[in-house]
Design a protein around this nucleic acid. Sequence first.
DNA 1: TTCTTTTCTAAAGACCATTGACGAAACTGG
DNA 2: CCAGTTTCGTCAATGGTCTTTAGAAAAGAA
Lengths: 394, 394
Amino acid sequence: MSTMAAVQPQLLSQINERSVLRVLQANGPCSRAEMTRCMGATAPTVSKAVASLLRSGLLEEFDAPESGRGRPARRLRLATATAQVLGLVIDAGMCRLVSAGLDGRLHTANEIWFRTPDSYDELLQKVCEYVAALSDRNGVRTLGLGISMPGLIDSREQKGLLSPNLPITDGHSPGLDLAGRLGLETVLVHECHALCLAERHFGDAAESENFVMLEATVGLGLGAFSRGHMLSGSGGFAGEIGHLPVVADGELCGCGRRGCLETVASDSSFERLVSRRLGYRRSIEDIVEQSRAGEIDVGAELNEVLSHLAFAVTTAINLYNPERLYVCSRLFDLGDHVLSRLIELTETRALRPSFNGCRIERARGSKREGAISVIIEHLTDSRVRSGDRFAKLA
Amino acid sequence: MSTMAAVQPQLLSQINERSVLRVLQANGPCSRAEMTRCMGATAPTVSKAVASLLRSGLLEEFDAPESGRGRPARRLRLATATAQVLGLVIDAGMCRLVSAGLDGRLHTANEIWFRTPDSYDELLQKVCEYVAALSDRNGVRTLGLGISMPGLIDSREQKGLLSPNLPITDGHSPGLDLAGRLGLETVLVHECHALCLAERHFGDAAESENFVMLEATVGLGLGAFSRGHMLSGSGGFAGEIGHLPVVADGELCGCGRRGCLETVASDSSFERLVSRRLGYRRSIEDIVEQSRAGEIDVGAELNEVLSHLAFAVTTAINLYNPERLYVCSRLFDLGDHVLSRLIELTETRALRPSFNGCRIERARGSKREGAISVIIEHLTDSRVRSGDRFAKLA
DNA sequence: TTCTTTTCTAAAGACCATTGACGAAACTGG
DNA sequence: CCAGTTTCGTCAATGGTCTTTAGAAAAGAA
């Protein structure tokens, strides 16, 4: 018999604490009284929840001389002076580690870049070293570490499965390993899911409960947010749109198959197409620069990639029916017409009501912000132990 | 300022009541003591929750002479002798109305079939008439009505938007209209979503929290269940896989575009292909019969449809990463090899880890069961007012 | 100075779940 | 046949949570 978490009265306190955090995340700093009006709960309830959060260090009080009429409010905010979280972005080539306040604001001055080591052990060691460096600020507690990683990630075991561009993590669980070594709450997610959460925290997706992030950079992946949760699927592989087979006998993909969507609808594919025509290898940055300077014309290649990308967007819109869809790609650096062209192409493909209900925009978040968002989201939500689980078979 | 539902102590009672219902749905009838063991809550808590549910008529006690050792348990079950729900399936051609106990078991003897009327008003009238007939059993309360309908459905306004085969409902809200006329709790859902829920209630998907139903009959649609909820998207159009554009200049689709996936990967498309070759129109039933009798060979057409269907299955697996995927199609009536062939074709297309984590099976549920499941699900979940909503912007 | 307004805390009442104890009903065994 | 045992369900008491109501603190306005 699978036991069910017994519903205990303290569940209410937990929910209230989470509500306080959510309000602060959504609206920024405020006083207890504003919180009361905003949350619907009564003042004493808010005070208790706030007190508990202050004790655990997630909140802090600060003085903001405000010219009100009556007794001045003591304002509250997500801990920034007394606590921090860390975000780690593992990528092919470079890794980045950054700290941030619990409000998600990055301490960009503290950002550490380092070359991705050649072995997994070395990676762990480097990260531990840098984490120690960033954690060593007196009076500041480090509460957790969020990790963004490319490739396939088994979210249940927090394990990297397959990452053509970053093979050193295959079969390893950097989340668990680092949690063990560092003694920190650690969460590992796919970089698309991280980007998606970044958009929620930092972009204006905050209001939208239903949105999708489509990342078309090196590969092509997707993160979907629905009803207040990331859609992960049973193993954490949800959103792997990049490996839909769309071109018969197409290019070889990192997954071992041919003709995957990401071989024709990504920045890499654009790079490859242009490089092939020009006869030598160029980076997307170079291409953008030369194109903007009018030195080369990449219209044909752009059209080809955009048309496949529009299929990806269409798939996302038809299958997830989001309110907003963010696209992350360097192609937009080519000019504003790229996004409008993509929207035009999508309009002719997508199901009309779904298309009409969806705003397509360029993504604003970064992976660093995503990694930070992930751990903040985790810390916030883990305050509610088991709001929504139920018994299974006896 | 958008107000938030204040968290009140009675939320706990509501959660416990829902838990009781869930346990009964998952495990079948049991006594209070078994429930106590199964739920994790204590005996008095269970007793109170059960008492409340008995009062509201969702549960009933029954005597089952059981040879235990001590005091015999009074066993509980979801009300079947004292309450019922109704399920309405609106379809092109025929409609069906059936009653069922709250355990979901259909009263097949009471099933009513009727020709789909030619006007919306007539439809409403007929349904009211038949509902009255089915509700007129003394001692039995009718608690709700679930409706399954094809086409595009705006779940927020419970409105039918576009249904090529059933235009009379376009722009109308049969859910709201019938709720008003009948005074019943009413829920309207897309037939795919209904089928998906049917699989959860009646099939062995009960254990799986993450599964997808792919319906490839007249059209091609999909319902996804994730984390205990149907995935609906912002407008309720999630899962419209059938209108992905896959064939350039293909057949005209009901949505007005050409080359939609459902024009090549559905029972209808198979019918059309075979009919076209044979030179006259045949129904899928006829084709199946003649093929099984060895009178015609439909291997070529089957291969073509299956290959497109495999793309649909691949899309579902890659994007939703379900534990199970159910396919609903008449093609399987052609023989057992059809499913295995579909699985083979999918294996060469889908992302390997996602494919390995997913069992592909033939759907067992029916739309009637789906309509019933929908209303039961609604009645169960509506016992918890607002477990998981939080404040937005002030 | 005195009143008003606003903020935050404290005390009292209502609700819920848990613990522990008790009666009820059936079977076991002398 | 009757006491003992086992299991089931309910009752009363306790602790925790939220809400309502009342009160103290702080600053501006008259």
